[in-house]
Amino acid sequence: MNRASLIFAVLLALLVPVSLLAGRVWIAPTDFGPGNTLLILAELRLPRAVLAVVIGAGLGAAGAAMQGYLRNPLADPGLFGIAPMAALGAVASFWLGPAIPPAWAGWSLPLMALAGAGLGMACLALIAGRTSSDAAGGAGGGMALFTLAGLMLASLAGALTALAITLAPNPFALSEIVLWLNGALTDRSWREVAIAAPLTLAGIAVLMLAARSLDALTLGEEAARSMGLEPRRLLALLVVGVGLTVGAGVAVAGIIGFVGLIVPHLVRPLTNRLPSSLIVPSALAGACLVLAADSIVRVLPLVTELRLGIALSLIGAPFFGWLLLQMRRGRL
């Protein structure tokens, strides 16, 4: 475990109990007697906290891997277009609601979102399979093509989602779709944890398999291939790893942006700056960020709870602007 992992693991260990106690109704550390308190903790706050940790970890690790892959500190897991595809799948479930058997009703949204993420991954894999990057003398064609394919998928999924909103079957569905797209952990239960946790952990494990190959990209694609990098294997690992982590997150919580962009920057100064040293600490830091943000939105004195996705975008967008300024000054 490197220094950054240790720091964020300790921070996470401190944040989890605070998150369990925080909310509209604060729970005193001494108030663990029988009754509603234990119920609130076990059935509401603990699954919500675990889900925040899982989603944050997935987004953080995916962000570190994407920045390493694209050799760009401004890269974000969203560039693969998987999150919008997962969101499109989820939105489709609002449409298909009446046609879904009641026994499946509770599962339709996350499963459709995962199907959307899977479709996005398949499209990317199909494009990757068609790049002749080796013969062209590098993974460059593959990498650029891949990013553009991700943007194309994101645009298409965004347009179709907008169409679904415009043609929403009823005002209730419209409100549900819009609210859901903003991302939140409100009212999530152990069922969402059971869906997201195994997929996210598998995704992080896949990204860790790509870690050394991402290090090789530090000197560019030709140098990386000269060090034994296999571009297609790396691409496959990235698609699966980012697909699982981001897809699982969107499936249970909607779109939560900027975590993958911000977190590697918080971690990088504490490491040797190679992508391999960032993935695990970025997962831990992502968990801290989403858990802290979710705890804060719970205690803000607003009439309705601020959506987590909106809160993180409010933090993330200015941070992105600050990164751009740093880049302009040559400090990034």
């Binding site: 530090t218 560019g220 030709e222 000269s226 040797n272 190679l274």
Partner: peptide, 14 residues
């Protein structure tokens, strides 16, 4: 075979 590209850009300030 070790290969040294011409003036490679180093992505991270390691």
């Amino acid at each position: 075979i070790g290969y040294l590209p011409q003036a490679p850009d180093v992505a991270w300030d390691v």
